[in-house]
Design a protein around this nucleic acid. Structure first.
Length: 871
RNA sequence: GCCGAAGUGGUGGAAUUGGUAGACACGCUAGACUUAGGAUCUAGUGCCGCGAGGCGUGGAGGUUCAAGUCCUCUCUUCGGUACCA
């Protein structure tokens, strides 16, 4: 008999069995505790890659484990199906986004099924289906009604050639990633969700997410960016009007010798109007508006500004100070205006030096005597107040509240909190997305689509424009509409679509009742299943997707639709799977298989033979082509080995540089277990299987060998259980099972007595159960071969005996001055005096102590027994 | 610049609260079985040294009977963020 495991036969067999018996189909069951495990749903790009395999394997292991633990587990899968790649692919391949997307979904669904993941496929959703986005449109209308959604004019990255908005990450060095045209800022009317209303709540609850990695909550906190400060009012000279600034350093207000306002500030025009500076200011505003304001852009532009011609009054000194407009002041933060304190802020300092403005020291460390004329840089620290009237000599920290309070009494200021977080702009001038359900009427303005008209279906047959941009505005049958209010026939439908992050902000609720047509979700189903108990996905979504989801749950909570606020109780951010990139001068990025070693051992391009440059090791992504398709592994080793290997390579949260070295080891291990099981079946007589495995206490066992193995098996159960349950460290769980398997291999089955055989059987059965979440097909097969009935999924998770975790002999390690010198074993119950005596009598120890007297002997009896002799 | 994470054999990685550093694998070396081996099994494998022994967790200090683990400083890599007033 050939003793080899054949995944190509076994895996389809069990996949068919699971399907036929609908083992992964779940329904609400109030008698069982629910467990909602979710992996971030994929964008249907065409094929799954190793990163997906890793992500979904982690989830699947936990799901199968929790099932065996008796939970009613929901484990759904679906598709984040809207988005730009579909539009680009449609143009490139002369197809249609819908067709391309549905084809990809079909292909990827097959790949996932082939991996043996335990999804309840009846719950599958695709966000591009009208049945899904209908409810998103419905929610939009609700939010509009409640003032949670609004429209305003704002700047976006715009590519003129493609006629479209670009996300920040689609702008590469100021240029459009598709056509390399320079991107500029364009002002457009856009829809926004008022996420800032929840800034405080989102921030505060970051500290109440114990199941989230600190890394992620820290990133969210930084993103929300709370800072405490003051709003101070500066009267405009000669006008009965104020400019309000936000500052975190109200203590330095006496040093504010000028003011800067953002070029987009609504007052810029009126301030300069009628002054000699009017033209200059207008030109400057124009210039700044064409500047790129992303991170890369900022590096290139020097801080500069122009005097507006207007003055305002410093509320503390009552002096007239000039008002500048400057390119480094952001309209989107604070009030869009700052008081400039050159002595206390480096940017203001540089600006003052450049334009010859006064630098007045107001805070300096004790014992220092700064001079604004000779200072080399601003002093941003704390210290004692000077040049600040009645506050002189005060500690600057105390002066913050004191000065704010003083100005407040004069009606010139108040303490406030400012957030960095901005409202969420959701309009996209794109085709492949959910239409925004409003109509623009020349008479009535913005009119919501009546609920009964939902969904506003995206025309799936629209032809994409060769030059890019959305075809929707040009489609009369879509864009033309009748005003629901006044009946005017020439109203216009909003042809923007929603940001795809909107779909992913609530899909996990839809899974609870995916075919429900009475609302976004069936409240009863959500009450049972939600929130998600364990969410698993890439850390790249640490801020946006996870923040938007938290926001959405707050919106639904406010609307009274759900009774919780946090969507994901526990979060695992799995590390990225990385690989080096390869580029060729002719073809740019290459897929791994497009680079081969030539005769000289150098990498060359398969198409043009030119030299291939090996680039940095970065996260696998289709655009960089450094992706590994799991199909090859699947063909060669099957799903189980692929699963095992992806888990064994590293703990889940760690980044992983992909390499297939070592996959042989995983394959070898699976076959070792297989042969072990077969050998046992061959050599154990049938009665052994009939009477069953040993499950009693270790003390009942006669032979030391049996006892030792039995304890090892119990330890393994504990280790695997803890590793899966507490830390998701599957790599160490697997190595623990490997140790047990190695221990079994060390036993000669032919000479084993019945007692030992029963313990071997116990070990073997548990190995199969413990591995079953990781190697589901393989373990089902072995379980069946051992003569068990039904699916292994119906088995309870193994239990270990607390009293069988320790042997009655312990190893004592002996150190002299902290250095390991000897070891011996001794009865576990031996008292300390005896251990000490034995240690001191040890030959090697004697040699190291020599004739010196031990000063101190330390005995530790924790997980190790250790003796340290200090001489 | 700021925030965060990580640096351990040739490689992936172990080491739960300070207590045998290198589990488990990959790779490599030798041997066994075999017509054959990319199958399987056995033994070895941190570095230096013939040896006793010494040295070893990015680097430098420190605390401790004992430090990969705690403290101080520092270097490197990766991730996030960036004129945030």
């Amino acid at each position: 008999m050939e003793q080899r495991y054949h995944p190509e036969l076994v895996e389809p067999k069990w996949q068919a069995y699971w399907k036929k018996n609908q083992v992964f189909k779940v329904t609400e069951d109030s008698s069982k505790e629910k467990y909602y495990l979710l992996e971030m749903f994929p964008y249907p790009s065409g094929k799954i890659h190793i990163g997906h395999v890793r992500n979904y394997t982690i989830g699947d292991v936990v799901v199968r484990y929790k099932r065996m633990k008796g939970f009613n587990v929901i484990h759904p899968m679906g598709w984040d199906a809207f988005g730009m790649p579909a539009e680009n692919a449609a143009i490139d391949n002369n197809t249609h986004p819908a067709a391309w997307t549905y084809d990809n979904i079909r292909a990827m669904r097959e790949q996932l099924k082939r991996m043996g993941f335990s999804y309840d496929w009846d719950r599958e959703i695709a966000t591009c289906r009208p049945e899904y986005y209908k409810w998103e449109q419905w929610l939009f209308l609700k939010m509009l009604e409640k003032g949670m959604a609004y429209r305003k004019e704002s700047y976006v990255n715009w590519c003129e050639k493609c006629q479209t908005v670009l996300a920040n990450e689609q702008v590469e060095q100021d240029k459009c990633w598709r056509c390399s045209q320079t991107v500029h800022q364009k002002k457009l009317w856009q829809w926004f969700f008022k996420i800032t209303d929840y800034a405080r709540d989102l921030l505060v609850h970051c500290d109440e997410l114990p199941g989230w990695p600190d890394k992620v909550t820290v990133m969210q906190k930084n993103w929300i960016g709370r800072s405490v400060g003051s709003e101070l009012k500066f009267k405009i000279d000669g006008r009965n009007d104020d400019i309000t600034v936000f500052t975190t350093r109200p203590d330095t207000v006496f040093g504010a010798t000028f003011m800067c306002i953002a070029p987009e500030h609504p007052m810029v025009e009126s301030l300069s109007k009628g002054t000699s500076k009017e033209a200059e200011v207008a030109a400057f505003v124009q210039k700044v508006s064409s500047q790129e304001r992303s991170a890369e852009g900022l590096e290139k532009y020097e801080k500069e500004g122009v005097f507006t011609g207007a003055f305002c009054i410093n509320p503390a000194t009552l002096e007239k100070i000039p008002v500048y407009t400057a390119n480094f002041v952001l309209m989107g933060y604070g009030t869009g205006a700052i008081m400039s304190v050159p002595a206390g802020d480096q940017r203001d300092f540089d600006f003052a030096r450049k334009y010859g403005l006064e630098i007045r020291v107001v805070v300096q460390p004790e014992g220092e005597n700064f001079d604004g004329n000779t200072m080399k840089e601003a002093y941003t620290g704390e210290g004692l107040m000077v040049n600040s009237g009645e506050f002189n000599g005060l500690d600057s920290k105390k002066a913050m509240d004191a000065i704010t309070g003083w100005l407040e009494k004069k009606g010139r200021g108040k303490k406030t909190v400012s957030y960095r977080l901005r409202d969420w702009g959701i309009s996209r001038q794109r085709y492949w997305g959910a239409p925004i359900p409003v109509i623009h009427c020349p008479d009535c303005g913005v009119v919501p689509v009546p609920e009964a008209d939902l969904p506003i279906k995206l025309p799936e047959d629209a032809n994409l424009l060769e030059k890019g941009g959305s075809p929707l505005p040009g489609l009369d049958y879509f864009a033309k509409a009748t005003c629901p209010e006044c009946g005017r026939k020439d109203a216009k439908r909003d042809t923007d679509t929603m940001d795809t992050f909107v779909e992913s902000s609530w899909y996990y609720l839809r899974y609870c009742s995916p075919r429900y047509d009475g609302g976004m979700f069936d409240p009863e189903a959500v009450k049972y299943w939600a929130p998600v108990d364990q969410y698993i996905g890439g850390v790249e979504h640490a801020v946006l997707h996870l923040l938007y989801s938290r926001y959405f749950m707050r919106v639904l909570n406010t609307l009274g639709m759900i009774d919780f606020k946090e969507p994901f109780t526990r979060l695992l951010t799995q590390g990225m799977v990385c690989k080096e990139t390869m580029t060729c001068p002719e073809h740019g990025y290459l897929y791994p298989e497009e680079a081969v070693r030539n005769d000289e051992g150098k990498l060359s391009c398969t198409r043009c033979k030119s030299h291939v440059e090996v680039g940095r090791v970065i996260k696998m992504s289709k655009s960089k082509k450094n992706v590994v398709d799991p199909n090859e592994l699947l063909e060669k080793y099957g799903a189980d080995v692929t699963r095992l290997f992806s888990l064994f390579a590293a703990p889940p949260e760690r980044d992983l540089e992909w390499s297939e070295d070592g996959v042989e080891g995983s394959n070898r291990f699976v076959n070792r277990v297989f042969r072990l099981a077969l050998e046992c079946m061959e050599k154990f007589n049938n009665t052994m299987f009939a009477t069953g495995a040993f499950t009693g206490s270790a003390f009942e066992l006669e032979s030391a060998k049996a006892k030792e193995l039995y304890i090892k098996a119990n330890q393994t159960i504990k280790k695997v259980t803890d590793d899966i349950d507490k830390s998701f460290h599957f790599n160490t769980a697997i190595s623990a099972v490997m140790e047990l398997v190695n221990a079994l291999y060390a036993i000669d089955l032919d000479s084993a007595d019945d007692e030992l055989k029963k313990v071997i059987l116990f070990s073997l059965e548990n190995i199969i159960l413990l591995l079953s979440p990781i190697l589901p097909h393989f373990c089902e097969e072995l379980f069946e071969k051992l003569g068990k009935k039904g699916s292994i999924l119906e088995q309870p998770w193994p239990e270990y005996r607390e009293d069988c975790l320790e042997t009655d002999e312990v190893l004592v390690v002996v150190q002299v001055n902290g250095k390991l010198r000897s070891k011996f074993t001794i009865g576990a119950q031996t008292n300390e005096a005896k251990i000490k005596e034995t240690a001191l009598a040890d030959k090697k120890i004697k040699k190291h102590i020599g004739d010196k007297d031990p000063k101190k002997v330390i005995i530790i009896r924790k997980k190790q027994t250790l003796v340290n002799i200090v001489v």
